[in-house]
Amino acid sequence: MSLIVEKRTLVIPGQLIAEGDFVPGENAYKREDKIYSLRLGVFDLINKKPTVVPLKGFYFPRAGDIVIGQIKSVEVFGWIVEIYSPYSALLQSTNRSKYRRDEKETRKEIRVGDLIKAKIVASDRSRDPLLTIQEKGLGVISSGKNVRISPPKVPRLIGKEGSMINMLKKETSCKIFISHNGVVLVSGPSENEEKLALWAIKRIEAEAHTSGLTERISEDIRNARKKGDLNFES
């Protein structure tokens, strides 16, 4: 059993990453006792499994994830929701909010084009994922700004034990919610604060792989505030 490449190195698809009696982790596969990478990413050993953490990619729905999506259409059974993944999700009318019993009322509540925050209850590759909004905090989003980031960058935006996101919340005094599919919802006391947060989020996405990012971003936010230069239209 030996690792061919060091941890935290960039690997490309088809690259030999480990040899021997390993169980391949995510984005890796085994052929004749050799583990190869399947995607462009950073190699790591997670639970003793050679794994590749992708640098780029799309969202793959998993049960239990909280996602933010847009209502695409209204059907007989409920709604079809675009969750920015290879599969669009279904929100069945039986999974609508508990507190609105009247069917007609719910139809008015959730319209085509609305953004909703929902939880995935079931997802496998053979059928479209099912959503529910029967939980506290889920449902149609009525206020705030949103921005989409690349799903593999979501862990970076949260940071180690939430260090990045807590810093952002503190510096901008905004409420920030990051969904698993990479939609970030920002609501703050003023439009400028929200813009500042969105600008910072976009920068974190672009510079996700650099070190010392948390400090740099917080400094930049403070500098921008000092200058009074809070125009982040771009």
Binding site: P13, G14, N27, Y36, L38, R39, K56, G57
Partner: peptide
Amino acid sequence: LADAGIPLKDI
């Protein structure tokens, strides 16, 4: 394909 993040056995 590799750039798009699609799983590939080899380039």
